[in-house]
Structure formats: structure tokens, C-alpha cells
Design a protein around this nucleic acid. Structure first.
Lengths: 343, 343
DNA sequence: CTGAAAGCGCTAACAC
DNA sequence: GTGTTAGCGCTTTCAG
């Protein structure tokens, strides 16, 4: 084995010395920028890999002012939801020769401040996020620093400049409701995660309500359960429990996300309501777990990995003006948690 | 990608100019290195945040030769197993002022080569991995470049220099077997993921076999099912299916990991074997899904998030000679998939 | 086609 | 206490 020093610390100067050329030429060869005679080019390449030369990205970044690093920032890394998303980003990043840095979501404002400071200091080229993990002023700050920002489900009103990808919940929720209606359900509740607060027209909740209206089944106020306290099954469970007690005439429940739906499933079990006979349950996301519950969860699948890749590519797009922002289209996956309504 | 030139951020020189001092002084103040009169220090601070100064880590890294970036590299980012692990690393990284870069595992050798090249180029300070995602020579290469490497379940024989954390499967598997035996099971099979190949003394499989022996229940060759083809429930399912058909006298099955156990659960369902009455099933890992299967999965929980934090701290440890390598201790979580053996 | 030289923003000797 | 200076390794004018 070659010695440490030689193998790893080779600089362009070393390569140049070995090939009998200047650093300039080395740089030109290695980046295929500028005209170099093929003879010297050959010598440079040989010297480079004889020395095991690896470009020093730090130096390059300093010089050219771009780091080729994008950061992914998500609410809760422990949430199984995000793994696929990150995977998608990673995948696309690899083919774009970027590396991805990950940041746990900022819980409080102080955390957010620190995150932003870090992003700024590290001079990342871009930031990708799912959901609104950073306050608008922080996002503005990134934007002002020339850092590109792309986001999925950033509501309401992502600051101008954010490359926003939307999920077509309009069609998605229409599918969900159509499915339920076709099974004879008419009294369909919604387990809402208050997080998508003012429920903008692209939001899950808004689209659900809209779809209900389209079917002539206006959503009743009391059919809504509000889960507050984070995306955790337990939260969904208690909210569903309350809802089931309060309005027993419901025959179906659509949940804002699968985590909450998992809780609803438990709540049903707990109160002796059979799924899907007594109550049908639908989630959104299609997390890994969804296939393994009893019964398996019917859910509106979000192609998270693809969404991650799309977000990265959208981030890289040089001009977004003329292009239509990418849409992520969800797909209803019917499993065992939905069935015919009781007569 | 566009450079940030046009947005040029404040540099130390700008701060210095505004405060009427030199860059050196600014550096000294901002890093609290060196003696500076509190009066000037005060002026510098004021100038700094008047200008919204953010240190440029790129420049700093180039100068000091350390990037304060650690990379996490795992087999498959989509595997729900890893999310918590990464979260743990992130958590500890935050308090150590490091940022974490993530790398999807290298599937093939070419991928691995590229990953390593990237790590080298980006001059990360350290690499943390779960499982052996990189061939030994690649690891050597990182080590040779002065990059610290920490790994969990890196078997067999992590190259010297790797800061290896082990999981105490010895006690863990002992708990598993003791649990099963206390329920009256004696014919206990094992669903093996061949990946932990030569089954070193720290490995899941080895420890299981050892625990069986301790209980006077030597594992029969034919009680072993081998799942090849990756960590996917489907793989576990077909392997379990085969095993159940081949050796019906088994009353319990321990699975190398939860993903495989999920498959085993399906296989049991498929063949009409009730769990846990006809066959008890135990997994390892305690992935999120485990709580939601029917019946819920009894499993040997690995504290993945803590493991991630531990790994990072162990990576940072300056001298490892005198210190005992950290041990991760698993904990048996009894749920519904295990019960008394049929008489 | 090739090289010399000027920095990118920061830190660390080394003066004063 | 504070400033001057010399780079870290690279890209990029600008000359030859």
C-alpha cells in the first residue's frame, strides 16, 4: 500500500510537478476546461491517478463560490414518512454530483435560527424541505443569501422565490371520496392535523372538503376531529376515540396522514368497532407500515421518493419562470380498511 | 449552479473595517481566541451583527483542514430501520456543532468507489456507518486519509482503526431464548439473513445459536431458513414459507430482523398457522411497524437513535485506547407474537 | 497551447 | 493588545 501522505494529500501542484506542467494545466485537464494538447492531457491524467489525486472540494468551493451541497430539512427525522423522501433527494443528488446534508427540523425558534445560521455559514447551494419547517423570515434570509429553496407542501403562501412543488390533492381526495361513496358511505369524518392550518386550496383538508361537496355530501362541522400535538399515532387515537364517541353515525373516517390513521385503527379496535365493516378508515401517505396493519390500510399514496428527486431537480432548474411547477400526483391504494358501508 | 457572488456576504474584513480593527482582531474576537480588550471586542461584536456576519465555514475549513462534517452511510435509506439511527447521529452532531452529510449505501463496487471518492474530496472529518456498507479496502483508504471511521455491526473484523461499536447480542439473544423457553418452546427456528456471513461471535445468529446451546437446545441445521436477496419482507416471507413446510414441528421462529419477521408473519397467516398459538415469532430491531402488526411483534429492540448518538460521540473521542468501546444493549419487548407453546 | 500570478475568506505565526 | 503577512488548494484572468 502506498503511504498515507502520498495517496491522499496530493494536490494539483503535486500532479503538475509529476507531469511536468503547471497547476493551471492540471486544472484545465481535470475539469476539461480550456484547450490542452492531448499529449500533456494524457500525462496529467497518468500523474493524477498515479498519485491517487482527489480534488479538494473545499478549496474549489471557496474559489468558485458554490459548494455543491444541498440541505434537506424535514420536521422529524424519526418520522418514517421522511426516509423515502430523503432517499429520493439523495438519488437525484448523486446523479447531479451533489452531496446532501441533513438537518433535523427546528423544533423551536431558537433551533430554527441556529439551523439557518448553519446553512448560511456552510454556504449550501440549496435547501429542500417538506412542510414548513422554517418560519418565513428565515426562508427569506436564505433566499437573500442566494440560497435556492425548494419546498413541498409549504403552506400557506410560500415566500416568493421558493420553488414550490404541490401535491395534487384535488384529484387525490376526489379519488378517496369517490371510492368511499361508491361503497355506500355518506357520513364521512375527517381526522385533521391542525398543522396545515388555514387549509389553503392545495391542502389535504381543503381538498377533502371540496371533494365531499362535489359529491353533495357537505362535511359537517362535528364530523371533524382535530389532532393536536404532533404526528403521532397516540394523538390520532385519542382524537378518533373522542370522535367515535361523539358522533357514532360516521361510517368512514379519512385521516390527514397514515400516522394518525394508525391511531384511528387502534381506537376502532379499542371501542370494538370493526374495520372496515363498522367503520372504514383511509389514510394519506402510504408509509411502510400501512401494508402491515390489520386490516391493511387503504391510503392515498404519496410517491415520496419521486417527490424528493423532483424537488432536487426543480431546485437545480435555472429558470423557473416559463416552466410549470412540478406536480406530485398521489394514488389511491385500496387495501382492507375500506369496504361497503353498513346498510 | 449559480454562484453567490452577487449577494456577497459580509466578510471579516468588512466587519473589521466597520469596527476600525484588522481581520485578525475580528477573528480573535469571534473565536474568543487570543487576548483582545473588551472595548474593541464589543465594537467588533456590534459591527458583526450590524452586518449580519456569518462565518464562512468553507474558508475556515480550507485554512484549518477540518470540515466539521461527518457522513452517515447506511445500506438502504428507504429501510425504516435507519431513520432513527440517522436522527441520533444528527442530534449528537448538533450539540457538537457538526453537520451531517448522508450517503445512500453503495450497491455495487462502482458505487462504493464513487462514494469514497466523494468523501475524500469533500474532506469529511468522519464517517459513521451501520453494517458493512463499504469494502475493507475502501475503509482503509478513508482511514489512510485521516478520516475517522466509526461503525456499528461491522463484521467480521473491522479494519484496525475503525471505531467499532458492538451490540450486546449475547445478552439480547439470551433474553430472547429464555423468554421462549419459559413459554415452553423447545423447537425454535431461525430465519437468517446471510448478510452477517461468517457469523462472528458478536453477530445475531451466532449469539442466538449460543443461547440455544446454553439452554441445552442445540439448533438443528434444518431449523435454519436462509433469506437471501435483501432485507425485504417478501424475502422473509418466502423463506419462512419454505421453512414452515419443511419442518412443521417448529413452535417458534426467531428472525434476524423485523423486516424478515414481517414476512414470516405473513407466511404464517398465509398457511393458516395462528400466531402466537401455533407458531411464535420474534424479530430483532423494533422498527416502527412492529407495534402495529396483528398480533404486534415481540422483538429485541435496538436503541437505534441512542446508537447513532453514541457512534458520533465515539467518533469524536480523541483517544480510544484506554476507553472501553461503547456497547449498545438491546432490550426484549414482549408483544403479542409470542405466547405459550402448544402442549 | 501553456504558465505566472492574483485572490476566494479565513487563521496563525510573527512582529510591534 | 493589535496588525502584518503568509498561505490552505483551487480557478481564472492575462500574458506569452
Amino acid at each position: 500500500m502506498r503511504t498515507t501522505k502520498e495517496y491522499t494529500k496530493a494536490t494539483m501542484e503535486d500532479v503538475g510537478r509529476r507531469a511536468g506542467v503547471s497547476v493551471t494545466t492540471v486544472s484545465r485537464v481535470l475539469n476539461s476546461s480550456g484547450r490542452v494538447s492531448s499529449a500533456t492531457a494524457e500525462r496529467v491524467w497518468q500523474a493524477a491517478d498515479a498519485l491517487g489525486y482527489q480534488i479538494n472540494h473545499i478549496a474549489k468551493s471557496l474559489r468558485v463560490g458554490a459548494t455543491h451541497v444541498v440541505a434537506v430539512i424535514v420536521g422529524d427525522l424519526g418520522n418514517p414518512f421522511y426516509a423515502d423522501f430523503i432517499k429520493g433527494v439523495e438519488l437525484a443528488a448523486q446523479s447531479a454530483q451533489l452531496s446532501v446534508s441533513i438537518c433535523a427540523g427546528a423544533q423551536d425558534d431558537e433551533g430554527a435560527r441556529r439551523q439557518v445560521q448553519m446553512l448560511l455559514s456552510k454556504r449550501v447551494d440549496g435547501v429542500i424541505m417538506w412542510g414548513w419547517c422554517l418560519g418565513p423570515d428565515y426562508i427569506e434570509r436564505l433566499l437573500a443569501a442566494g440560497i435556492r429553496v425548494a419546498g413541498i407542501e409549504v403552506q400557506p403562501n410560500p415566500p416568493t422565490g421558493v420553488r414550490s412543488l404541490t401535491i395534487d390533492f384535488r384529484s387525490g381526495m376526489r379519488d378517496v371520496v369517490a371510492h368511499l361513496v361508491s361503497l355506500g358511505h355518506r357520513r364521512i369524518g375527517y381526522l385533521w392535523d391542525r398543522h396545515d392550518q388555514p387549509a389553503t386550496p392545495e391542502s389535504r383538508f381543503f381538498c377533502f372538503r371540496e371533494a365531499m361537496r362535489e359529491h353533495g355530501l357537505p362535511l359537517q362541522e362535528e364530523w371533524i376531529a382535530v389532532a393536536t400535538g404532533g404526528q403521532r399515532p397516540e394523538i390520532g387515537q385519542s382524537a378518533a376515540l373522542d370522535l367515535f364517541g361523539r358522533v357514532p353515525e360516521l361510517t368512514a373516517l379519512v385521516c390527514h396522514n397514515d400516522l394518525l390513521a394508525l391511531g384511528a385503527l387502534q381506537a376502532a379496535k379499542q371501542t370494538g368497532m370493526t374495520v372496515p365493516d363498522r367503520i372504514a378508515i383511509v389514510g394519506v401517505d402510504d408509509i411502510f407500515t400501512a401494508r402491515f396493519t390489520e386490516p391493511p390500510l387503504t391510503t392515498l399514496a404519496l410517491p415520496r421518493s419521486e417527490a424528493g428527486s423532483m424537488a432536487l431537480r426543480w431546485l437545480l432548474e435555472s429558470q423557473t419562470e416559463n416552466l410549470p411547477p412540478p406536480q406530485i400526483v398521489p394514488r389511491l391504494i385500496v387495501r382492507g380498511s375500506t369496504g361497503p358501508a353498513i346498510a
